[in-house]
């Protein structure tokens, strides 16, 4: 079967970017890394391209995590310096709200075990149970269990933070 990079790209690019974004938490970086993933795919022409790109994305994100901290500090310094930021087009408070929501999800995700988190992200990326199993080393039967637990933990952790925030707000206004 001919390797269909275009089809792969169209069906998975967004999902790969999202998957990477939730690991590196930087949109530009996620796009850069996704680019790298598809370049490697072009080279390797994998047999099971969809699982393959996520496996490679996971590896790249892991490598990235090892070397990221120093570079990210550097990048942050740079991006905060030279270019004057114009007033954002969207509503500022809306933006802040969105950022806060994202931070909560990020923290909630961080409370999951690495394996639970990986399974959840792979599911969200659109992989099927057998593909998730192959990538994480779990038995296919265990994927449902893991996913059920991961979802529950994510939602619980998030709700706990949310109620904490509500309490703080109430306390602040009282």
């Amino acid at each position: 079967m001919a390797f269909d990079l275009e089809g792969l790209y169209r069906s998975s690019y967004d999902a790969v970017v999202r998957f990477l974004y939730r690991k590196v938490w930087d949109a530009d970086r996620a796009e850069d890394l996704a680019q790298e993933v598809f370049m490697r795919a072009m080279h390797h022409q994998p047999e099971k391209p969809r699982s393959w790109v996520f496996a490679v994305a996971a590896n790249i994100a892991r490598d990235e995590a090892r070397s990221a901290i120093r570079r990210r500090k550097h990048l942050t310094l740079l991006t905060h310096e030279p270019i004057a930021h114009p007033a954002p087009l969207s509503d500022v408070s809306e933006d802040l709200e969105r950022q806060e929501q994202e931070a909560e999800v990020k923290r909630a995700l961080a409370t999951l075990s690495p394996r639970d988190r990986e399974v959840l992200l792979l599911w969200d990326a659109g992989l099927a149970y057998p593909e998730i199993a192959a990538q994480t080393g779990l038995a296919v039967g265990a994927v449902g269990t893991t996913l059920a637990r991961a979802r529950k933990r994510l939602v619980l952790a998030h709700d706990r933070m949310e109620s904490l925030r509500e309490e703080q707000r109430a306390a602040a206004s009282a």
């Binding site: 970017v17 999202r18 974004y21 994202e102 529950k152 994510l154």
Partner: peptide, 21 residues
């Protein structure tokens, strides 16, 4: 309950998505 949990987890993850290209 499982369906609700599933929907909520997906909705939460959707909040943590990069801006569109």
């Amino acid at each position: 309950e499982a369906e609700a949990l599933r929907a909520r987890a997906s909705a939460l993850l959707e909040l943590a998505a990069p801006p569109r290209a």
